[in-house]
Amino acid sequence: MIDIHCHILPGIDDGAQSERDLVSMAQLASEDGITTIVATPHHKNGNYENVKVTILKAVESANKILQKKGIKVMIKPGQECRLYGEIIADFRAGYIQTINDSKYLFVEFPSSQVPRFSKQLFYDLQIERIVPVIVHPERNHVFIKKPEILYEFVKHGALTQVTAGSVAGKFGKNITKFTFDLIESNLTHFIASDAHNTFNRTFNMTEAYEVINRKYGIDYNYYFKENAERLLNDDHVMSEQPQRVQKRKILGLF
């Protein structure tokens, strides 16, 4: 299993803080059936800045440590990039790390905002042949209240990734319900852990896929797992025609 969103690199953001944390997270990931992890440290979120060269060095170091410990988990480079106006200039300057050097870039919105420039910036990113992948849209208050905004992004070429913990109910019933709305409306394409540690923000991947299998069947499991592999290999990601989330589905959220 591939986990495409994880804060496992030690000491560079609010995820793993030490080599011990790195090893503990990798061991837990392996127990959860994960063989490959894309390390996605925060960038430009107001607290952390992690440019491409820093991430590549940290990934190289992490893989050496895990190999020495005999842990069979491979770390690949990525970045969780907060959406900001200079992102294209920084991409051209070599500061932005796409997912495993593919055309796919993780972009994060503030939890309570969708900046007005987002639509134009997404268009500009795609002109640069970069596909924006919106992380954890199910936890964004604007998308919850106005899912048609997310629908428009996906309709015009963006992809999205929901969190395994959201599927598994770790963020509450309302978040889980909206996550299912996104799945049922073809508005999400990946499931990933967004793991930060081994206690309250952990992997939950096996549990999430068990929920998906019970609720939607094995074909959905295949869809999400296959897309993670396609993302990692810079292949074309599978997607279905997006649908609008009916407002009646989200009444009572927040």
Rank of each mutant, 00 (worst) to 15 (best):
A26K: 02
A168I: 10
G15S: 06
I4H: 11
L105R: 05
Y48V: 07
F106Y: 08
H43N: 10
V59I: 08
K72S: 12
L253G: 11
V53N: 12
T36F: 03
V59T: 15
A39L: 05
F122T: 11
Q126N: 07
G165K: 07
M25H: 08
D21I: 00
Q246V: 08
N63F: 09
G157Q: 13
F122I: 02
L182E: 14
I96L: 07
T198F: 09
V59P: 01
G169E: 00
G165Y: 03
E49G: 06
T202H: 11
S30V: 08
V59D: 00
Y223W: 02
E108Q: 13
S30W: 11
D14F: 05
I2C: 13
I37T: 05
H7S: 04
V23Q: 12
E229A: 13
Q161Y: 01
D90I: 01
L22Q: 06
Y151S: 10
N174H: 04
S61V: 07
I96S: 10
D3M: 02
D14M: 00
V53W: 09
L28S: 15
G46I: 03
L83A: 14
I144A: 14
Y216D: 04
M74H: 14
G217Y: 01
R92E: 13
R201W: 09
G94M: 05
Q126M: 15
T160G: 02
V51A: 15
Y84L: 06
N200M: 05
D90A: 06
D21Q: 08
A89K: 08
V133T: 04
D14N: 07
M205K: 04
Y220W: 07
H5N: 03
I96R: 07
V162K: 04
D21W: 12
I149H: 03
V211Y: 03
E80G: 12
E152C: 06
K225C: 03
D13P: 14
D181M: 09
Q120C: 14
A58M: 09
L22D: 05
G252I: 00
D101H: 10
Y123R: 15
G11Y: 00
Q97W: 05
A58R: 05
I12N: 07
I75C: 10
D219E: 07
S166V: 06
N227A: 10
N50M: 04
I71A: 09
I37L: 03
T198R: 14
I212C: 05
V51R: 13
P137W: 07
G78D: 11
D234V: 02
I8E: 05
I183N: 10
E108H: 01
V154F: 11
E148N: 13
V237N: 04
D14Y: 00
E108I: 13
A29H: 00
G217L: 08
I144L: 15
V237P: 08
I175L: 14
F109T: 06
S102R: 14
T36P: 02
M25G: 07
E184K: 03
E31R: 09
A26Q: 11
Q17V: 06
Q79L: 03
H7E: 01
I99H: 09
K145I: 10
K155F: 08
H236I: 13
A58V: 08
N50V: 08
R201D: 15
R129T: 06
C81D: 02
N100Q: 12
G85Y: 11
Y48A: 05
P77W: 00
D3C: 00
E240N: 14
S239R: 14
E86W: 06
